[in-house]
Design a protein around this nucleic acid. Structure first.
Lengths: 129, 129
DNA sequence: CTGTAGCGCAACCAATGGGTTGCACCTGCG
DNA sequence: CGCAGGTGCAACCCATTGGTTGCGCTACAG
């Protein structure tokens, strides 16, 4: 992909989150997309990313929702492998575990690549004649 | 790294979810994650990526769901800017428009990066010295 | 020892959303 | 022309789920 078609993956391989690994083809990242589908959850992920760690009540205080709701979301994220909980004293701190993100990214890259290729083939087939 | 030979700029979409955020790299790709949250939809995306284009009925034939359901999904994808429809004769062919994927990927990369940095800072803070 | 800040259930509510069925509307073809 | 394959719409299920409230337990600070 040099000046290839569309080069959907903007920039050179976004390596930032390349620490995991991932089998490209299939559909392993379902849970991740599912987890990220909710705006509140996305926000939580963002916050955890910036802040490093936080407790449910803490997060709830700066969000328009109940602590319980936050807990549910965090559980969801944990379920997708995006967050982990750890008891610390009398509170529970959650932190990000972004590895699964690379799986998701990989999936998208794969699909995009397929598409790019198909498009290239198409152009090749009807342009240079 | 910003030229797309194919020439479809796919202008900005509705994106009516502009809440009052301050952060720049906020939550642009919401629609994408939402669209990708459904397994069937992910499958459709994958198929469209490989095949280039297909009609709803065509897709419905090889999926365990109704054509209507497929249409709904395709609409959802289109709504997220991931697919586009084009009438061809008496049928409507849908094709992938993967650009939005890079936004989503970018978001993930950003979050991941933030996290990485925080982690690094933490290590730096308690390891050496 | 008592009070208070956090956490963990569990029940419950209302909205959303994936799917289906039914039907009317075109368009191309023999 | 007549018909068949393809679409578009709309009404209608029902399972999921984001969110809330209520309550009981635990743990640390005075």
């Amino acid at each position: 992909m040099a000046q290839r078609p569309t080069g959907f993956v903007r920039g050179p391989q976004p390596a930032p989150l390349a620490r995991g690994h991932a089998s490209p083809a299939s559909d392993p990242s379902g849970a991740v997309f599912d987890a990220l589908a909710d705006p509140t959850r996305r926000r939580l992920v963002a916050v955890l990313g910036e802040r490093g760690a936080a407790s449910a009540t803490e997060l709830a205080r700066e969000l328009p929702i109940t602590r319980q709701a936050v807990v549910k979301h965090l559980s969801a994220l944990a379920g997708a492998g995006l967050a982990s909980a750890a008891r610390e004293g009398r509170e529970v701190r959650y932190r990000l575990t972004p590895e699964p993100l690379s799986d998701a990214a990989a999936w998208m890259a794969h699909v995009g690549a397929d598409w790019d290729e198909r498009l290239a083939a198409l152009e090749r087939h009807l342009l240079p004649k």
